[in-house]
Lab assay of single mutants.
Amino acid sequence: MQRVNMIMAESPGLITICLLGYLLSAECTVFLDHENANKILNRPKRYNSGKLEEFVQGNLERECMEEKCSFEEAREVFENTERTTEFWKQYVDGDQCESNPCLNGGSCKDDINSYECWCPFGFEGKNCELDVTCNIKNGRCEQFCKNSADNKVVCSCTEGYRLAENQKSCEPAVPFPCGRVSVSQTSKLTRAETVFPDVDYVNSTEAETILDNITQSTQSFNDFTRVVGGEDAKPGQFPWQVVLNGKVDAFCGGSIVNEKWIVTAAHCVETGVKITVVAGEHNIEETEHTEQKRNVIRIIPHHNYNAAINKYNHDIALLELDEPLVLNSYVTPICIADKEYTNIFLKFGSGYVSGWGRVFHKGRSALVLQYLRVPLVDRATCLRSTKFTIYNNMFCAGFHEGGRDSCQGDSGGPHVTEVEGTSFLTGIISWGEECAMKGKYGIYTKVSRYVNWIKEKTKLT
């Protein structure tokens, strides 16, 4: 034993070699072989497995989906700052455009905790909710729209109204504003409101030439003092309507412009014939205590009207009353817009006519005020429907199939267009061939041609 100890002390290297040989010859039971080890760690190889990531292109799944990435790591994937920024906006807080917040056709661009709407022409605001041009839906104005110097929408209202708090709607500024039905039992019968379409306001006024200088022999019209197929109006439903009495009662109609003036057809009036105007009328054979009678003290036909040349060209006249009318729910003026808007309103496509005229061709006159909704007829169809001249200051309205029309005794009465609950004068009943005849239409004086003249002559002093 002493000898062994001496050998170990003198030859430590020998001992180490012996131990190493023993270990190498022993069977290893701690580690699995290569094949079995792979069965336990069965993990798919990654895209760049075996390579240094710093030297390969980034992978979106590896960089940002398996674990949260930084902007720089995302930049490695896209290799483009702009594309990385677009991805980053949604990656950080989701897609803010998912709810489609942009209105009126706006395009949404996502941002971090926010979004941006790219608005089409005519709109602005956070969600493109603000109209900035009158060309689109009248700028959301209830009545009139004008573009300011910086191309912003400025709404306005006709006389007797003021802008509401929203700067879009119009509200009454006087007790009985024009064009409004205020009798409670008839307010439910107000005709369907007309909503502004998209309009090209630059070209809204037709490029028409008034044929002022045409000389033409007097034409022989049949029954051209021209509501057939209409309905009984309720008291106060058309408070701007008046009836004219002269040699015979209810020979023509008219509309209240203001307390002192009536507008009617020029062919209705004769110099030297006494005319009485009755406002607030409903049943011409009954006294309903809503009527107001006034005498006409002055007749002003349009300066281009000449019955000797043509009885229905420039067929418009103004009547001055001896005493002002007292405005109330049964006696209310009709609204008159400017030339541009009167023309736009007419193009809405349908209007209402009213009167006490004959209820059928050569038949009896109506006792109760009649009204009828009539569609506008395109000019080409209008011209083809008659052998008589249709001037540019006239328009056609009615039904091709016949059966409904204005008729004798309705002449001078109103053709009105309702705009968001307020009625505007767009025409004056003038003439036609018979009444409600198939293929024939009622012919009306186009008020847009005469609004400046009306307003100039009827100013209240």
Rank of each mutant, 00 (worst) to 15 (best):
T133M: 11
A37W: 02
P375L: 07
G236W: 05
V242E: 01
E456W: 06
L23K: 02
F196I: 13
P172A: 11
N295L: 07
R191N: 13
Q237G: 09
E159K: 07
G50Q: 08
H361G: 10
I136E: 12
F176R: 05
A265C: 03
G409I: 10
T215S: 09
V56F: 00
T264P: 00
L23G: 02
D212T: 13
E434D: 15
Q216Y: 09
F348P: 01
G236A: 07
I429R: 15
T422Q: 03
E208R: 11
V183Y: 11
V77P: 02
N138S: 06
S204E: 14
G442Y: 05
D111W: 07
N304L: 15
D212G: 11
C117H: 02
K459S: 15
A37H: 03
N295W: 05
G179L: 01
T332R: 12
G179R: 00
C396G: 01
E76N: 01
A337V: 03
L20G: 02
I112K: 14
L20V: 12
T426R: 00
G403T: 15
P120F: 05
C18S: 12
G412R: 04
V451C: 07
G272N: 12
K387G: 09
C382T: 02
S448Q: 05
E270Q: 14
T332V: 13
H267C: 03
Q167L: 14
C407K: 04
A173I: 12
V242W: 00
E285D: 13
P414L: 15
S148Y: 07
L189V: 12
Y161M: 04
N328R: 00
K168I: 12
W356Q: 04
T225R: 08
I40W: 05
R364C: 04
R191H: 07
F345P: 02
I210W: 14
R226D: 11
P301T: 10
E142F: 05
G246L: 05
N5Y: 09
A366E: 15
I284R: 13
V174Y: 05
I454P: 00
E35Q: 13
G246P: 05
V269C: 09
C108P: 03
N203A: 09
D322I: 02
H267L: 02
N127M: 13
K39D: 09
Y444T: 01
V4R: 11
D131C: 10
E165R: 11
V359R: 13
A233F: 07
V227D: 15
G106N: 03
E340G: 08
G229M: 15
T84W: 01
F144I: 04
R364I: 08
G21Y: 15
G160D: 10
V183W: 09
P177A: 09
R191Q: 08
I136D: 14
F348Y: 15
V154I: 11
A307R: 11
G413Y: 15
A164Y: 04
Q216E: 11
T381S: 05
G105A: 09
S204A: 06
V92L: 11
K455S: 06
L367I: 12
R373F: 04
D378R: 06
I256H: 00
L60V: 09
A192L: 12
K440R: 12
G246N: 09
N59M: 04
L52E: 04
C145N: 01
I309S: 07
S11G: 12
C128N: 03
E340L: 10
S329Q: 08
V248C: 05
Y444R: 01
S11L: 12
T85L: 12
Y115P: 04
I15H: 06
N203L: 08
N304Y: 10
G363W: 05
L425A: 00
Y391S: 15
W356K: 09
Q167T: 09
Q2M: 14
K109G: 05
N295S: 11
C97Q: 02
N147R: 09
G50Y: 05
R298S: 09
E401F: 09
G94F: 06
A149S: 13
M65L: 10
P177F: 01
P172M: 06
I40M: 08
